[in-house]
C-alpha cells in the first residue's frame, strides 16, 4: 500500500505531522522544564533571602553568627515546611558550618569550591549543581563590607525529576494520541483526495494495455488516447504492409 504514489505522499505528510506534533511536545517539555526550574528555584531563593535578612539584622547589631539564638529553630522550621529542602546551613568566614538542619554537620568545613564561590559572588545568590541536588547560597557581608560567612539551602532534584518524568509521560501520551488520531484522518483523507488521479492513471494504463495482445500489438476499438491509437494503428498497418510487400517481392523471384 505504501510503495505507491499514495503511500509516498502519506508517508511524507504523516512524517511532517509526526515532526510538527513531536517538536511541539518537545519544545513544550523544555519550556515546562525551564518554567518549573524557575518557580522552584524562586521559592528556595526566597527562603534563602528570608533567612539571610534575619541574619543581617542580628549581624548588623554586632551579634556574632555563632551566638544567634532562635536561628536553629528558624532553619528547622523552614526545612520542615518544605519536604524538598535537604539541608539549610549557615557557615562562618572560614567555611565552617555553625548552624545546620543536620546537627552532625556543625563544625565541619564546607567543600573548598563552595567557599571560594561564596566569597567570589558576594552581590547575588550563587548556585551549584551537585549529584544529589542543587545548592544555592548567599554571602553575608558585614557593615564594613567584609565577608562574614554565608547561608546555603540544598534542595533535592528528585522531586523535580519525578515531575519531569510524569510530564514527559503525559506529553508522550498526548503526542501519540494526536498523531494516531489525526494520522488516521489524514490517511483516509489522502486516499480520497488521491483517488481521482490514481483512477485516471489506471484508466490510461488500461487504455494502453488494450494495444497488447499475446505475441503482438492490436488496435483496440475503445480508447481515450486517440492520437496514440491512430499512430500505433498506422505503425502496425505500415509494418504489415511492408511485410506483405517483402513477401511478395520474395515470392515473385
Amino acid at each position: 500500500m505504501f510503495s505507491g504514489l499514495t503511500g509516498r505522499i502519506i508517508i511524507t505528510v504523516v512524517a511532517v505531522l509526526l515532526c510538527a506534533v513531536g517538536l511541539t511536545s518537545l519544545l513544550g517539555y523544555n519550556k515546562y522544564k525551564l518554567a518549573l526550574a524557575n518557580i522552584v528555584e524562586g521559592r528556595f531563593r526566597f527562603v534563602l533571602g528570608d533567612i539571610k535578612n534575619t541574619l543581617d539584622v542580628s549581624v548588623n547589631l554586632g551579634v556574632a553568627l555563632a551566638d544567634l539564638r532562635n536561628l536553629q529553630e528558624l532553619l528547622d522550621r523552614e526545612k520542615t515546611a518544605d519536604d524538598q529542602i535537604q539541608l539549610i546551613e549557615v557557615f562562618d568566614a572560614d567555611g565552617t558550618v555553625v548552624f545546620s538542619t543536620d546537627r552532625s554537620n556543625v563544625g565541619q568545613v564546607l567543600p573548598e569550591d563552595w567557599v571560594q564561590l561564596a566569597f567570589l559572588t558576594t552581590t547575588e545568590a550563587w548556585k551549584l549543581h551537585e549529584e544529589d541536588g542543587h545548592v544555592i547560597g548567599l554571602t553575608l557581608i558585614s557593615s564594613f563590607g567584609a565577608p562574614l560567612g554565608g547561608v546555603i539551602v540544598s534542595y533535592s532534584h528528585a522531586a523535580i525529576d519525578q515531575k519531569l518524568a510524569q510530564i514527559g509521560l503525559d506529553l508522550g501520551q498526548i503526542t501519540v494520541g494526536v498523531i494516531a488520531g489525526y494520522g488516521i484522518v489524514l490517511v483516509f483523507g489522502l486516499i480520497i483526495v488521491l483517488g481521482r488521479p490514481r483512477r485516471q492513471l489506471e484508466s490510461m494504463r488500461q487504455s494502453i494495455g488494450q494495444f497488447l495482445v499475446p505475441g503482438g500489438v492490436a488496435v483496440p476499438s475503445v480508447t481515450d488516447i486517440d492520437h496514440l491509437k491512430v499512430s500505433v494503428k498506422a505503425a502496425v498497418g505500415a509494418i504489415d504492409e511492408a511485410n506483405r510487400k517483402i513477401q511478395e517481392i520474395d515470392g515473385s523471384t
Binding site: 506534533v21 511536545s25 494526536v178 489524514l186
Partner: peptide
Amino acid sequence: LLVLAAGTAA
C-alpha cells in the same frame, strides 16, 4: 489537519 493536530496538541 496540521493546524488542527498542532492546535489540539497545544
